[in-house]
């Protein structure tokens, strides 16, 4: 300890202090939350028994229910996810271009784009679905629009970042040749962001398949409606059938997307 050589410290005092402050705040927040949250301890300790009961009632899965209504609802769910993803692009492309500083240089445009992107991401797809069910009535339209509005923030933000990362050389070359604004976008920007674009869209489609499976709980169409109905009637064997269908479709969607993305990148 006498020589300074042995006093190696990984972090400076300031770094240490700020880290400990963060830890302290986290602990205070945790303690405060646990003290004020309304949790009934009996319910918590009862949970394993209740879970076991629930699963035992689900057990022989009602496979006969699949052709009756699960199949059609599952197709509807996939259609909602796909149409929603396609509709998202209509809104997300202009916002992404507005958000990318190497396409539009106006600060105002960035703020407007960012406002829309953040509000789209902040509101959960179920809440969007509630809003659109209030507007269009229960059904597929509400689901498609909810998926579309929810995805705009994700696709717009990441696509904007992808556009900002491109090499400006070819853009400059095109501009120097006197290409029009549209040509620069199509032949300069597009080829460079295309792989990122497709991998983003596929990734979002995968997420949307998961999300569209639950939109039906608020009446926005798809497998969620079937799930909700069987749950309200306490037909747990049908519930497990719907859950199994969702599980299989989500896994398949993920495998497809992962494989396509591997080839793209």
């Amino acid at each position: 300890m006498n020589t300074t050589n042995y006093n190696y410290q990984r972090f400076t005092l300031r770094q240490k202090l700020s880290r400990y402050t963060v830890y302290l705040v986290i602990i205070i927040a945790l303690v405060q939350s646990i003290r004020t949250v309304e949790v009934i301890p009996e319910f918590f300790f009862d949970a394993p028994t209740q879970m076991a009961d629930l699963f035992s009632r689900m057990w022989p899965i009602d496979f006969d229910f699949y052709p009756i209504s699960v199949h059609g609802a599952m197709i509807e769910t996939l259609n909602i996810a796909t149409l929603g993803t396609l509709l998202t692009l209509v809104f997300a492309l202009p916002l992404a271009l507005m958000n990318a500083s190497n396409v539009v240089s106006s600060v105002w445009a960035h703020w407007i784009a960012r406002f829309f992107l953040v509000s789209s991401r902040s509101i959960n797809s179920l809440v969007w679905a509630l809003l659109f069910v209030a507007i269009f009535g229960p059904g597929v339209i509400a689901g498609v629009l909810a998926i579309a509005f929810r995805s705009v923030g994700f696709v717009g933000k990441l696509l904007g970042e992808a556009i900002e990362e491109i090499n400006m050389g070819s853009i400059e070359a095109l501009r120097a040749s006197g290409a029009s604004w549209m040509t620069v976008l199509l032949k300069g920007y597009w080829p460079q962001v295309m792989p990122a674009f497709f991998s983003l869209v596929l990734f979002r489609w995968d997420i949307n398949v998961r999300e569209s499976a639950v939109l039906g709980l608020v009446g926005a169409g798809g497998i969620g409606v079937v799930l909700n109905d069987s749950m309200n009637l306490f037909q747990w064997q049908r519930v497990s059938m719907s859950l199994l269908a969702i599980f299989v479709v989500v896994i398949l969607a993920e495998i497809i997307v992962v494989n396509i993305r591997k080839r793209l990148i």
């Binding site: 309304e38 009934i40 319910f43 629930l54 998961r210 639950v214």
Partner: peptide
């Protein structure tokens, strides 16, 4: 990861009852 949080929430609401506990789990 496979199931959407809402579906997990439904299962927990059925098993531990309404309230914050189901949300936490």
């Amino acid at each position: 990861r496979t199931f959407h949080p809402v579906i997990i929430a439904i299962l927990f609401v059925k098993s531990v009852g309404f309230g914050a506990l189901a949300g936490i789990l």
